[in-house]
Measured scan of single mutants.
Amino acid sequence: TGYYDVLGVKPDASDNELKKAYRKMALKFHPDKNPDGAEQFKQISQAYEVLSDEKKRQIYDQ
């Protein structure tokens, strides 16, 4: 599964769309709200870390 799929956004998503999707998913799977969501929360955080950084995103998109 790709990072875009993890966040539920298209590859041409804007920074604002990425942030909005990340916040929505992070709230849904945060371990405090969803004890079984810890692994998914890590994936969401990693996806956002890469896609929100312009240089990392360019490398990922290659």
Rank of each mutant, 00 (worst) to 15 (best):
T1D: 07
T1E: 08
Y3D: 00
Y3K: 00
Y4L: 03
Y4M: 01
Y4N: 01
Y4S: 02
D5A: 14
L7F: 03
L7G: 00
L7T: 01
G8K: 06
V9W: 02
V9N: 00
V9F: 01
V9R: 00
K10S: 12
K10N: 09
K10H: 10
P11G: 06
D12I: 05
A13H: 00
A13D: 03
A13G: 02
A13W: 01
A13I: 06
S14K: 06
S14F: 05
D15F: 15
D15L: 15
N16L: 15
N16V: 12
E17F: 01
L18D: 00
K19A: 12
K19D: 07
K20E: 15
A21C: 07
Y22L: 05
Y22I: 02
Y22R: 01
Y22N: 01
K24T: 08
K24H: 10
K24P: 00
K24E: 14
M25D: 03
A26V: 13
L27N: 12
L27Y: 08
L27F: 09
K28P: 04
K28N: 08
F29N: 03
F29E: 00
H30M: 06
P31A: 09
P31M: 07
D32T: 10
D32H: 07
D32C: 14
K33L: 14
K33D: 06
K33V: 14
N34K: 04
P35G: 06
D36N: 12
D36Q: 12
D36L: 11
A38L: 11
A38S: 08
A38R: 09
A38G: 09
A38H: 09
E39V: 07
E39C: 10
E39M: 08
Q40K: 14
F41I: 03
F41H: 02
K42I: 09
Q43F: 12
Q43Y: 12
Q43C: 14
Q43E: 10
I44D: 01
I44Q: 00
S45W: 13
Q46F: 11
Q46I: 15
Q46Y: 11
A47Q: 01
A47T: 00
Y48R: 02
Y48P: 01
E49Y: 13
E49V: 06
V50Y: 08
V50H: 06
V50W: 07
L51W: 00
S52V: 08
D53S: 07
D53H: 05
D53A: 07
D53F: 07
E54A: 15
K55R: 14
K55N: 08
K55S: 10
K55I: 10
K55A: 11
K55Y: 13
K56R: 13
R57K: 04
R57W: 04
R57P: 03
R57Y: 04
Q58H: 10
Q58F: 11
I59T: 10
I59R: 10
Y60S: 03
Y60W: 03
Y60K: 03
Y60G: 03
D61M: 06
D61Q: 04
Q62V: 07
Q62R: 12
